[in-house]
């Protein structure tokens, strides 16, 4: 466990000296902040009666519809998180530090877990940096706190899946840019499934919804976090981490 901790700490500190990581962090915050401004402005311009006509309480609507933390947060995650995960394993291979890690008394699983947790922690930190925005809402508009918390939890899980895909892509290549593109190639279809749901007949719509990472989030923005989606996230994350371990071990066997 202490090895996982050591790898994780090194990973986090590496982010803070990497200009690329800062660029992707800034991108995330920028997208979310733009979404926030647009949402608040539009909300302020919409009469209350029209919002109620949509069947949502004002307080919930503040979080889910108006601000659209989910929509914008998902978009921001999709764009910027692959940039944070792309170097996790690629860089080790390229710079030769993999020889240090894999000749030390640590298992591949510990290395992958440490690196993954490092990137997830950084994402947690980025989410903390967005907190002034919901705090502004709390100050001015009394939104539903539970809905806010669920939205944040949902977004965090969403990012956790993207990062797991990212570390898997990074295990496949020495080239960070290829790892970035591979992550997009896996993550984007995983998200697009959501848009198929309304067009499918049962039981296929249920299957598509269960496979869709984004679908879970829309629910969480309304204050409900479905356990089925929690399982989906857990399965996706552990699958991609497991695959990364296998890829690393098998490439060493060649």
């Amino acid at each position: 466990m202490s090895s996982v901790w050591a790898v994780m700490r090194r990973e986090i500190s590496a982010y803070f000296v990497s200009p690329i990581a800062y660029a992707f962090m800034a991108m995330f915050l920028l997208i979310v902040a733009v979404g926030f401004s647009v949402g608040v402005t539009r909300y302020a311009l919409t009469p209350a009666s029209r919002i109620e006509a949509l069947g949502l309480s004002l307080r919930t609507q503040l979080v889910s519809g108006t601000w659209g933390l989910m929509t914008w947060g998902m978009f921001a995650s999709l764009v910027s998180l692959p940039g944070l995960s792309m170097r996790l394993l690629s860089e080790e291979k390229k710079s030769g530090t993999a020889e240090l890690l894999f000749t030390s008394p640590v298992t591949t699983m510990q290395i992958v877990a440490g690196k993954y947790l490092g990137s997830v922690s950084l994402f947690g930190l980025i989410l903390l940096l967005t907190l002034p925005m919901p705090m502004f809402l709390v100050w001015r508009a009394q939104p539903e706190i539970a809905a806010l918390a669920a939205a944040y939890a949902g977004l965090f899980l969403y990012g956790a899946v993207i990062l797991a895909v990212g570390i898997f892509a990074s295990s496949l290549t020495e080239n960070q840019f290829i790892a970035l593109l591979l992550t997009y190639a896996v993550v984007i279809p995983l998200l697009l499934v959501e848009f198929l749901v309304p067009f499918l007949r049962p039981p296929f719509d249920g299957v598509a919804a269960a496979l869709s990472v984004g679908y879970a989030l829309k629910g969480s923005a309304l204050g409900s976090l479905d356990s089925a989606y929690l399982i989906l996230h857990a399965v996706l994350v552990s699958t991609f981490l497991f695959l990364s371990v296998r890829i690393i071990d098998s490439s060493r066997w060649r």
Binding site: S2, S3, W5, A6, A14, S18, S95, A98, L100, P105
Partner: peptide
Amino acid sequence: PVYREMIVRSYLGFVADIKR
């Protein structure tokens, strides 16, 4: 096998950790 962005001392600290 060095991490170029690290300071010598903290790099050796990391090595000490993974070498238990």
